[in-house]
Design a protein around this nucleic acid. Structure first.
Lengths: 406, 406
DNA sequence: CCGCATTTGTTCATATTACGAACAAAATCG
DNA sequence: CGATTTTGTTCGTAATATGAACAAATGCGG
């Protein structure tokens, strides 16, 4: 039951029903392909005539294509329909603290090529380099004409309206435009998004299909910081000033360590990779100082994780503490948003079998209802490139989204 | 950008545009009344012809009515339109721990009559008493034919689909049906809702009109427990198992007092009225024991509040601590949901001028961005009967909501 | 091999409705 | 009193959902 926004509404026109039904058909094909026109008509409870007309529109604009006929017990064999994905490509870009990843992928998120280079922090130089590499990448794969757009994922808050990066601490960016300048430099439409939200979009649009496609969930990323993408009823929550989902800064302990954000005891100071690492090394966590100390020690989080897998007691204990606090953080999500499931991404998923019982235990003890306590936790390994998949989803999703109406 | 739910979608029919535009007109009249047909046409960027046709439909079914013509600088004087509210009535019911409130109100939430009786905890007896009192109330005000339905607000989780109260600790209810039995007993449609959500709906539908009507906000209730109704883009978030909004149980201190929910250091153990009261009395907070102790002392939260207003140092210090923790709790909301504003309801709003600077300070120190730190906090005094207004909104809102489509 | 049943996909007449232009009504102004 | 302006209505037109009729394709039983 939604209230109509009288400041900004979309009135229905003569062609609104067609747009809506067209999009429903497109999504039904996406989720149930291969599927015949007759099946679509049955699922939509509509005459086959209208399906024919809508499908021919979708065929004309290349959204879908006809496959082969298929056997059926009797009667005329149905002609199967598929979404056109393999020859519609996306350039997915993931800008991280140290490296930038560039991937050519199809609309399903299947990778075609992947390359990496050291992140250039200066925005204009980064855009120039990206433009050059994108042009080369597309040329090398004879994909210039097939590219539908560029998806750009950044570690920071993004204003979707202007496309500006409001704040990306890891890159030192504040109110920086990259979307429009990259679009101008390449000639392709560019979609930009904050990393946790992009990961959430990847799950929604490129994850499971059909009946268990997630549409009410939270995607929590644990890396240098802790962030989240929140999806409610198939839509991302951005917040009034684009700062929703900052779970890294929920207070865990009023007397806890000082956080970079200026407050004390933020979740991030307990569960970020740096926090875990410094706990392992026995340092007190002081964000400003820690980075230097860790650099000296030449240890990374993956070292700690592999040692924990090998049975190193100190590593295991450091991760145990991280898991306890992460459990507390996730229980905030469980009690306040009550999602159908929670995805967890980040390096820490490499030791999921070790930490998951601890996390589950904390959630079980803190969840208000037994149903909420049972909220499924799903780890997503870094090896599946969640952010790059998210970048792909940025370009593909708008073509399948519900038309805005009322 | 919403993903279409292929398991449960609403396909557009020939009459879908009409339903959508009809509802837009109805809402425009609601928000800008009195308003003329010509004004509606301009706001909707549509010909006046269609407005005439849609308005006459709305006039026919009694949703709106024609008022008087009004002066204009030149040309034919416009005929003003209004939403029919004064003779469409609602029975609003608020079931609380000790008392149950019964109000007859119009569609705008204007009270016509109010009565109270001691809450009957046994559901069947409560329904029977309610049915009798409702019949009397309507008869006494010659309102039987004007009543559009019953709104019932309960202090607990509600399953909207089945209408059952899943869990209401204050009443000791678990999986109890009251909606359908009250509907059967009275013959009126009954809408049931959890208290914080109802308060949020009251703000959205009966609060400010026009351009600053809230549609992205959180309503936090502080009383025996701490709960919240979350509204995103004009729609309430219920959660996968109807348990979203339970901010009372976010962890504040891992070593804090034991909460009734079984966990330690929940927000509620610091900021509920019982917590404040026992802090004032110098007791350690032990939920199970405290209620008895407080009963002995014969003090209530309102006593503490009035003493604080009179300058009682001990009361002020107890409230100061409550405010500090409430600030921490609200900063969770600010950082995770980033609402446009936060409403705070409950007895504690009586000393809002004393606690608000403290709360603001904590939020400012913990909010991740300066914009988020500036999130407006709006106290709502108990004297405006927020829950009863919410109960009214339950009945009125569905008639104005956006049609479900796609 | 030929009806016959069955299922798929298309075509076409019909009804609904947005759209826009023309028109009628009501008022002001010079 | 006519010109002008604004409001509200009417009506022909175009778009499109709807449903029935039709054509196409296939298997089956005689």
């Amino acid at each position: 039951m939604r209230k109509i926004n009288t400041r900004s509404f979309v009135r229905a026109t003569r062609s609104t029903p067609r747009e809506i039904n067209r999009q429903i058909i497109l999504n039904l094909v996406r989720e149930h392909q291969p599927i015949s026109r007759a099946d679509l008509a049955r699922r939509m409870r509509v005459g086959r005539g209208m399906v024919t007309s809508l499908v021919s529109e979708l065929l004309d604009d290349g959204s879908i294509y006809e496959g082969t006929t298929v056997d059926s017990p009797r009667g005329r064999k149905p002609m199967m329909l598929h979404v056109r994905t393999h020859d519609r490509l996306v350039v997915a870009i993931d800008v991280r603290f140290s490296s930038t990843y560039l991937m050519l992928a199809d609309f399903n998120g299947n990778p075609i090529a992947l390359e990496t280079f050291d992140t250039i922090v200066e925005p204009e130089a980064l855009v120039a380099t990206l433009a050059k590499r994108i042009a080369q990448l597309l040329k090398a794969h004879r994909a210039v004409g097939k590219c539908n757009g560029i998806g750009l994922v950044v570690p920071g808050m993004v204003d979707q309206r202007t496309g500006r990066v409001l704040h990306a601490p890891q890159l030192g960016w504040r109110d920086v435009d990259v979307r429009d300048s990259l679009a101008e430099a390449t000639g392709f439409p560019v979609h930009i998004e904050n990393a946790p939200i992009a990961c959430a979009l990847a799950q929604m649009w490129l994850g499971k299909r059909g009946d268990d496609a997630p549409r009410d969930f939270v995607y929590v990323t644990v890396s240098d910081g802790v962030g989240a993408g929140v999806v409610v009823n198939g839509e991302v929550i951005r917040g009034h000033n684009n700062s929703a989902g900052e779970f890294g800064h929920v207070p865990i302990d009023p007397l806890g360590p000082m956080c970079l954000c200026g407050a004390r005891g933020c979740l991030e100071t307990y569960t970020s990779n740096l926090a875990t690492l410094s706990r392992y090394l026995g340092h007190e966590f002081v964000p400003t100082a820690t980075r230097g100390l860790l650099h000296e020690s030449r240890l990374t989080i993956t070292d700690v994780l592999s040692r924990a897998r090998e049975g190193d007691a100190q590593a295991m204990s450091a991760l145990h503490a991280t898991a306890l606090h992460l459990g507390a953080g996730l229980s905030v999500i469980v009690n306040t948003l009550n999602p159908a499931q929670i995805f967890v991404g980040g390096e820490i998923t490499e030791v999921w079998d070790q930490i998951s019982p601890v996390i589950r235990g904390v959630i079980a003890s803190r969840a208000l209802t037994s149903l909420a306590a049972a909220t499924p936790l799903i780890p997503e390994p870094a090896s599946s490139y969640p952010r790059l998949r998210g970048a792909t989803a940025l370009v593909a999703a708008p073509l399948f989204a519900a038309p805005r109406v009322a």
